[in-house]
Design a protein around this nucleic acid. Structure first.
Lengths: 256, 256
DNA sequence: TAGATTGTTAATCGATTAACAATC
DNA sequence: TAGATTGTTAATCGATTAACAATC
């Protein structure tokens, strides 16, 4: 996260949620004096891996595969089968012992656990190179994220076409967010204006933000914020590269 | 992500490196029978945070601040002072008890630990929207990453200008990588061709790769691979959003 | 010397792995 | 029933936090 991966996630995990008790559940299994069952919370590292399982399952589905073992799915996702089974246990028991998992059935349950059963409406703030690239990126639509608006402050850019959309004036941001029903925002902005726009977006009612701005954003605890910083990724790579490559070493041509 | 927390880092950490012994160091401190000092390895989560410290320090430097305490630097980086001091202890003792850290001095030592004392030469494979956005992104140059080439397979795109560069034909990739001295590659490609290009880049001698392709890449253990997947980030965000927002709930207009 | 702050240790917390009983 | 594979437990491993001795 950070990893975080290295995750650099700084969102909220409501402790209050942990304490919600499902009174009906607790009667049978729990012995006297034992804590009662609480609303499950999936560990952050497991949530990140769920997206890998989902991607692998959807590939299998596209290939027409109907069943898969934890061993095979783990391999396709790049994790150990032990980790996979442990992760799946956080969302429920959707496999059959001695048999494996039904691909479509498991895929649906993971999607449900991640909150991907309905489409999310995403607005992009910033129509520079990155904002445009994101707006045109096909990977979002196919995974349940609809880009519903893109904003910029530059009069030369406002009104121009980006993919299926027209760039809106950031001055109208609040009304456009409201009209389009956006419930997530991607910040593709320079560091200098990121905090200001972040504040406005939150004031407009948005509670989930993905930021590409290379700056530490301050958000209230009830806002979910994730950050992606491409220069940071290269710096982390540099650290590992340094340990395996002699710093000045030029590219070696392999024979082959 | 990361930690990777949710870090999805799947690179290599050479165990052999751990065993390199600095014979001279060990005589004084280590008692008889104790293991001798080995080449330090910074934990992944700490490496990711180092980039935050570096960013914060460079901001302070720009403001003309000369000294900073662990408490203040931690706050500016969004971590606890305990974590900060622990992290810094992995790279050395660059503070003064009772006083704090000299900003420039600490910044230089962290940069050195991350392998950022020389510029890295980065080639981008794929001149689509994302590749172009990355090539024009100012954040790289300012942090010691020189973009030295950008490739595409589309004859309509080859030869066109992107930032300071001209798009090269991916057919000439090996010779251009060699000529420009590139030692890192960013893959900005569709999933379908990513593995193939990844293989070619590795065969050409590249050992450090940052991939934006939404697919699990297979690389040999001596290659450092990091992945950034923007749709994955939104999916993780969706999970947290689901826990705090009622799924279908529209944006609420706050009074203010 | 007294106050401040680092660097490090020990305790806590969480994540991963290995192993296996449950069960199809 | 025998073989296969899940779901879960316990053990290991690593990361974070709190506390404080060292020392400026």
């Amino acid at each position: 996260m950070s990893s975080e991966a290295a995750g650099l996630y700084s969102g909220t995990t409501s402790d209050a949620m942990e304490k919600i008790v499902t009174a009906l559940d607790s009667s049978a299994a729990a012995g006297p004096g034992e804590p009662e069952s609480a609303a499950k919370q999936i560990p952050p590292a497991a949530v990140a891996r769920m997206t890998l399982y989902l991607r692998a399952l959807n590939s299998l589905l596209a290939e027409g595969v109907e069943r898969v073992s934890s061993e095979a799915l783990a391999e396709a996702s790049g994790v150990s089968s032990s980790t996979l089974r442990k992760d799946l246990s956080y969302v429920g028991s959707y496999g059959t012992r001695g048999v494996g998992y039904e691909v479509q059935y498991l895929s649906r349950h993971i999607a449900a656990a991640l909150g991907l059963t309905h489409d999310w409406k995403v607005a992009i703030v910033g129509a520079g190179n990155l904002g445009k690239a994101l707006a045109r990126y096909g990977g979002f639509e196919s995974r349940g994220f609809d880009i519903v608006a893109i904003f910029d402050a530059d009069q030369m850019v406002i009104g121009s076409e980006v993919g299926w959309l027209r760039v809106s004036d950031v001055a109208d941001m609040e009304s456009v967010l409201h009209r389009t029903g956006a419930n997530m925002v991607v910040l593709a902005l320079p560091a200098t204006v990121a905090q200001e726009m972040c504040d406005r977006v939150i004031a407009a009612g948005i509670r989930s933000i993905l930021s590409f701005a290379p700056v530490l954003l301050q958000v209230p605890p009830y806002v979910n914020l994730r950050k992606v910083d491409m220069a940071t990724e290269l710096q982390i790579l540099a650290y590992h590269a340094q340990r395996t490559q002699t710093p000045g070493q030029p590219v070696r041509r392999d024979v082959g």
